[in-house]
Design a protein around this nucleic acid. Structure first.
Length: 384
DNA sequence: CAAACGTGGCA
DNA sequence: TTGCCAAGTTT
């Protein structure tokens, strides 16, 4: 018995499992009895769109509190489309992949046109075609499929990490070639249940999260056990084949906390098109071989701000791992000596009082610095 | 098309 | 503690 011979058996087994074990408690999803979530939460194309973007490469557990905060601050598409990017980034702070917030911001303007002014409360006004959704920045085929199946209950296939893993195992497809990728999309399309595609896609994702996990899959309680070639003939953990892990290079970074006479601190806003664009940070940069970190800070602040500083005591140093590199930050307190600061390598500069730092969106490495600085200055701040 | 891209949870 | 990796998309 295989997936080709018995798509209906697979559908039935999976949906039956879902009715018992599905994660109906996910805030933006319909409840088991078909009712909408309790008040304060909503089932809407809007809420589902935001959730699906937040969920890109991000665990459900991490997303939920961010989604709730977001829906409170930007309850509708109209609110969102009027909001400033910086307010979006404030909510997104800590969630990672900040370009997603920027693309949501861009998409909101386009969606207002698609949906029509003041029509965003009516789900029927929202687009339900794959092409429309995929035309939006930050939305690819899988996210579009999730949104459409979840919001409109239309049979649109998805292929996220969960579904890739499940289908790879069902079919014992090992390699991650472009051809295999196409095959997996075909199976996702072939398999999708026509009567309740919303539940079917959610069932796939829930199975991937609960049973068909990357490590130690619970094959003994899997409703698809009998259909699974990887289980029957091989070791499910070998599918899909893992990527070679690359070594992340380690770089030394010197950061200067520059104070003026008023006790204000110099921060800069990252260039819009750089990584973490639009986020704020403390100025600094990469150490050159054979350069002291103090010299690095002096040089970088001269190059990027056009100022001369006196590098003082070290506040802290720590390592922060990004996707493709590791950075070792060394942070020194600095005194501003001369030169009017200019945003030579950033889009904006600001002198701010240390207790106002939490009004700006900072990436995680910088919040570590802020937290240490506040300890150093004995500022009690429960927000950080 | 291979590489880039943030972070926190978890073993 | 260190390393893996999660509801992917873009360039």
């Amino acid at each position: 018995m295989g997936i080709f011979d018995s798509p209906q058996d697979i559908q039935n087994s999976l949906l039956e499992w879902f009715r018992e074990n599905g994660r109906y408690w996910i805030p933006w999803k319909l409840k088991k009895d078909g009712s909408v979530p309790r008040s304060g939460e909503s089932i809407s194309p809007y809420g589902i769109w935001i959730a699906e973007v937040m969920l890109q490469q991000t665990q459900l557990k991490v997303v939920i509190p961010y989604w709730k905060k977001w829906m409170k601050c930007f309850p509708t598409l109209s609110y969102l489309a009027e909001a400033d990017l910086e307010n979006l980034l404030m909510i997104w702070q800590g969630l990672g992949y900040y370009s997603r917030a920027k693309r949501i911001h861009q998409s909101s303007k386009i969606l207002v046109e698609f949906v029509g002014k003041n029509r965003d409360q009516d789900p029927d006004s929202w687009p339900n075609q794959i092409d429309k959704w995929m035309s939006l920045p930050g939305i690819g085929r899988s996210t579009a499929g999730s949104i459409i199946s979840s919001a409109f209950d239309l049979p649109t296939p998805i292929l996220d990490g969960n579904v890739k893993r499940i289908l790879s195992r069902l079919l014992a497809i090992e390699r991650k070639s472009i051809r295999d990728e196409r095959k997996l999309w075909e199976f996702s399309s072939l398999l999708i249940e026509r009567q309740s595609p919303r539940d079917f896609n959610q069932a796939l994702m829930d199975l991937g999260a609960i049973i068909c996990t990357p490590k130690n899959p619970s094959c003994s309680s899997c409703p698809l056990q009998n259909f699974c070639v990887a289980y029957t003939k091989y070791d499910p953990e070998d599918f899909p084949k893992k990527e070679m892990t690359k070594i992340k290079p380690l770089q030394e970074i010197g950061i200067g906390l520059v104070f003026n006479q008023k006790g204000e601190l110099l921060i800069d806003q990252r260039l819009e098109n750089s990584s973490m664009g639009g986020m704020w940070e403390f100025p600094g940069g990469k150490k050159i071989p054979n350069e002291s970190i103090v010299k690095t800070i002096e040089r970088e602040l001269k190059e990027e701000l056009g100022i001369v500083v006196n590098v003082g005591e070290k506040l802290l140093s720590f390592e922060h791992a990004y996707t493709h590199k590791r950075l070792n930050f060394t942070v020194h307190i600095c005194a501003w000596i001369s030169g009017q600061p200019k945003p030579l390598a950033s889009q904006k500069l600001l002198w701010v009082s240390p207790d106002k730092l939490f009004d700006f969106p900072f990436p995680a490495a910088n919040t570590k610095i802020i937290s240490e600085l506040h300890k150093h200055l004995c500022i009690g701040n429960k927000n950080l």
